[in-house]
Design a protein around this nucleic acid. Structure first.
Lengths: 211, 211
DNA sequence: CCGATGCCGTACCGTACGGTACGGTTCGGT
DNA sequence: ACCGAACCGTACCGTACGGTACGGCATCGG
């Protein structure tokens, strides 16, 4: 909505207001993380942010609006993490490896999990599709570009396949609240295993992934 | 916990009580499907089942107990679907194909989705881990056996990889409430694509998958 | 210096839900 | 025939939440 990057209608950016909104959304996330979705309430957000409920409603309309804004804001903050260190990759496969790890790291950020939980909890209020558009879709698009550069005949399908591979059942378990040991190790193992299994398939693509 | 004092140690002890419980759990599922998790209430279940709330509480203790019982019951009904038509497979790979399709079909049953939603919504009440144990774990175990028979060196990892592959991002989208066109076609395509990509890896296993 | 705007704090309203209580009824066992 | 268990229907209680209203304080433009 009123993103900091571009406000097309008015030039009066009023950084004060934006700062307050950012503050409110910050605490929205914090409360979501602390209390979980089921115990999340406008009262708790107002208290945490030391703001009045009236202010929350003035800025975001209603509860759904607040969550909507929080999701969009978070999406904007998570997405750049995907690209970290990508240009230092030593080969297309190494690039894929880094991209995969970045994706998983972003995926299992506490904020991401909290947001995905509320998005999943009930698609009726439109938060679910929004999450799919703002977060899932963007990640797939990035990976898709990589597969296209590799010469894949079905970059989109391959991207989704790859992301599914590196997530495996881990994603489901984490979403279900199962305690995971050595998460970092498992993530790396999943990515390596996926790349290993994928190697012959990648080799069959026009552009040799080993440069 | 669920069942309370009347929990039958031998399942054939009190068919009457079991029939009522089954009826109540049936309507629990129905209401869950109709109203979604957020609007799910004990009142609604009682009304739908034409039962008194007192009865619900007598049999299941509290809301969590009711959902717990409903999940366990459903798990028992979903799991057998995994094995349908498996012994008619023409080859280990065909067996894997059937298993994959069965899994996806079970996964995207409305009941499964509703249950997974409530299990994901908040792991605090222990429903999440229960789902992981009762449903996810069982499916992985079955696929794991298949990979072991194929001669996989890491059957567990391979099973999780395979399931992740055939789910791809589809699972996430469905959970997020995105409308899916031609679900059946996409499921089949995911499975075929996974088998195709996996073929060289399977060929490398001691037991030749092509019989 | 003054009015307006935005905000805080608190109180408030309506509703919905989890869980309990109770009177009346059905039904199986003795 | 009788008793008690289980059940239904309804009413009830406490609480929590979404959303609104209002009095008081700060800040800012004129």
């Amino acid at each position: 909505m009123s993103g900091g990057s571009a406000t097309p209608l008015e030039q009066s950016a009023t950084p004060q207001v934006d700062a307050l909104q950012a503050h409110l959304l910050d605490h929205t996330l914090r409360v979501l993380l602390r209390d979980g979705y089921r115990r999340f309430s406008m009262n708790a957000v107002a208290a945490s942010a030391k703001a009045s409920k009236e202010t929350l409603y003035r800025h975001f309309g209603d509860k759904a609006g607040l969550l909507h804004a929080a999701l969009v804001r978070s999406a904007g903050m998570i997405e750049p993490l995907l690209h970290v260190g990508l240009d230092e990759a030593s080969s297309p496969i190494d690039r894929l490896r880094r991209l995969g790890m970045n994706y998983l790291h972003g995926c299992y950020l506490p904020e991401s999990l909290a947001l995905q939980r509320i998005a999943v909890a009930d698609g009726a209020d439109g938060l679910g599709p929004l999450f799919a558009d703002e977060i899932t879709e963007r990640a797939v698009a990035v990976v898709e570009d990589d597969f296209e550069a590799l010469g894949s005949a079905r970059p989109r399908q391959d991207a989704e396949l790859f992301l599914g591979m590196i997530q495996g059942k881990l994603h489901e378990r984490i979403m279900l609240g199962v305690e995971i040991d050595d998460l970092e190790v498992q993530l790396a193992r999943n990515v390596e295993h996926a790349l290993e299994v994928l190697a012959p398939y990648l080799d069959s693509m026009p552009s040799d992934p080993h440069r």
